[in-house]
Design a protein around this nucleic acid. Sequence first.
DNA 1: ATCCTGACTTGAC
DNA 2: GGTCAAGCCAGGA
Length: 125
Amino acid sequence: MAKTPEKPKEVQYSPESYSFFENVWEVARLVPKGRVTSYGAIARYLGTGRSARMVGWAMNAVDKSRLKVPAHRVVNSQGLLTGKHHFKTPDLMQELLEKEKVKVKNDQVVDFKKLFWDPMKELDL
DNA sequence: ATCCTGACTTGAC
DNA sequence: GGTCAAGCCAGGA
């Protein structure tokens, strides 16, 4: 299957699943070393579907929550380090990735497709 | 309360 | 391969 067109299904935005941010952090923390994932993948895994922006927002909240989340392993669907500018230093994200043997060229993850870690595929396997 | 912005994604042109 | 516009929801002014 190439891909699923779409199917938002029911968005579980119940008071119970209000821990959206926590879920994001949890999933992000599950990303293996040397792998990367995308905001949309996490969002979809959580069932939010198109609200991938909130994932990024959750990352911003990470710093506030003092939780240890490898935000550098989360990039956009293109494999571009869009969030690098929000790190302590703009180059920190790339350095962290390179430290994990992830090659980054021109703010873009090399072999992103290969290193891509899909929570839905890996966790729901 | 409204309005604007944003670490995004996808479809259409 | 590009660019443009719309959908998404939470926070800050």
